[in-house]
Design a binder for these strands. Sequence first.
DNA 1: TACTCACTATAGAAGGTGTCTATATGGTTA
DNA 2: TAACCATATAGACACCTTCTATAGTGAGTA
Lengths: 299, 299
Amino acid sequence: MVNFELYKVFYLTAKSGSLSKAAKELYITQPSVSHSIKLLEESLGLPLFARTSKGVDLTKEGAVLYSYIEQAYNFISLAEEKLSELRNFSSGEIKIGGSDSLCKHYLLPFLESFHVQYPHIQINLVHGTTPEIVRNLKEGKIDIGIVRTPIHDDHLQVREGITIQDCFVTGPKYRELTEGKVTLTELLAYPIILFSSNSSSRKFVTRLFSDNGLLLEPEIELGSVDLLIEFAKIGFGVSFVTKEFVAKELAEGSLYEVKLEAAIPSTKIGIITLKNMPLSTAAAAFVAELENPGQVGSR
Amino acid sequence: MVNFELYKVFYLTAKSGSLSKAAKELYITQPSVSHSIKLLEESLGLPLFARTSKGVDLTKEGAVLYSYIEQAYNFISLAEEKLSELRNFSSGEIKIGGSDSLCKHYLLPFLESFHVQYPHIQINLVHGTTPEIVRNLKEGKIDIGIVRTPIHDDHLQVREGITIQDCFVTGPKYRELTEGKVTLTELLAYPIILFSSNSSSRKFVTRLFSDNGLLLEPEIELGSVDLLIEFAKIGFGVSFVTKEFVAKELAEGSLYEVKLEAAIPSTKIGIITLKNMPLSTAAAAFVAELENPGQVGSR
DNA sequence: TACTCACTATAGAAGGTGTCTATATGGTTA
DNA sequence: TAACCATATAGACACCTTCTATAGTGAGTA
């Protein structure tokens, strides 16, 4: 199989009908083009051009070759254009898997600003539990996963995002709970509202109690953070939520934080990707934004 | 624009999913492929493969590139196959322009044997006068022209074919003409049958007479050699024909040659092609056959 | 006819690039 | 843990691409 580079020279020569012009387009000298064409003709065993004093004309066989090479050349040009788009963020796609509640409250602002900055990058958001996210990552269905740390998997690269602090909150009805410090045992006397049992925040809090020899059983189990907030507000009980995600409610006084005697350990957002698989340009840009909010992306 | 040769390496690597396998297909070593891929990635500014312990996987961008390069590669493969066919005479076309009578009586046997030998070569036969043939050649409408020599044109390459000898023939009716030598003047007493006035054989014979101060005016003017023969046979007069083309009739006695006192100069078949334009493989093979009948073409 | 112009071909030299060998590194599996 | 199979890296060398300089050729023109 002939050196493909020769076909580039051939194409430009045939197109311009001149070795000299092809040389200019290739930023090389005319003898070099002459030599390349000769090489190609020898490799293929056929004369491709008739040399005249005004340039070169394709022979029959040269014309046949040209009809194919023209298309091949166009595909390569298209490929390079397309890749350039991908590099320039003028096209591309990112698939993100957000674990549970993190989707809306943590990810959404990033998605919005990213979309404003790179409007041609299509964003695809999948949400599920941490194990689902990890599976999707490994199957190539998503590029980036957003989960709670700690997470340990040799195939994953874990970057740490912001620190989040979970807490119990309640509405005005159980306001007495928020006046002094409360023990975990005391808390269990109240109706507890928790996220669905397969979520990592649920596992986290269940573990917190069991480490203290206590069994945490929710009165109500809900599937969204918004509902956890609402139910607490209107007095159904005490919700376990991420403090950062209820900042507004705490500030406006529609929710109150329950101060516990035992501190709830803080945790970090984990931005996970596959260790081996290089990120697409767009995905890399998004990850960079997550790691250093507001600092990246001036192009 | 990236070195096209790198795309060949890329394609084979992506297709096999392995640098080592691509290296084998390319008959080079694995580090060389590794280097080429790295170069390509640097040239394009994007990672194209994720390296694993089992080989390499395309990245998102790599997959995009592959979808284009695959097609380009296929076109190039097709091109090379097609050219190989042209080289092997398993496809191709020859356009031949035959001047007047030469078509049938001279060319036909060659065409038949050539077609038997290379059944996939399509033969296209055009006939016309010598100037038409030359014009068609220059316009690229035919590849080879068959004319009477002499012919002089700086743009033409003229190869000589067989020698032909023109003569006057007649049927039994004017048999007295064929018994002794006849002068041109004596011949003019008989009804002369000639080819159409734009033919080169007609010009040739008219010139022969005018050089001797005589005016040759035909009784009958015909458009085909077959008719010249037929008309002479059945006694319409004396036809001017090429002796080689009436060999059968002379042998079987249906025609008789008129022996002239002045010898008619013999002439040669000219195989003409454009000087600058290389012949297609098939055309070159045909010309070789014309030049050396029966000696070429054992493949 | 001779001159000029524009193009391609050729020769020889030099630098760059592709390829090699040898070896390191890393993941997977028994 | 060792063996195996992948890719990565380093350094050396040879080849090949490209260069400069020049020759050759045909077309157009005074």
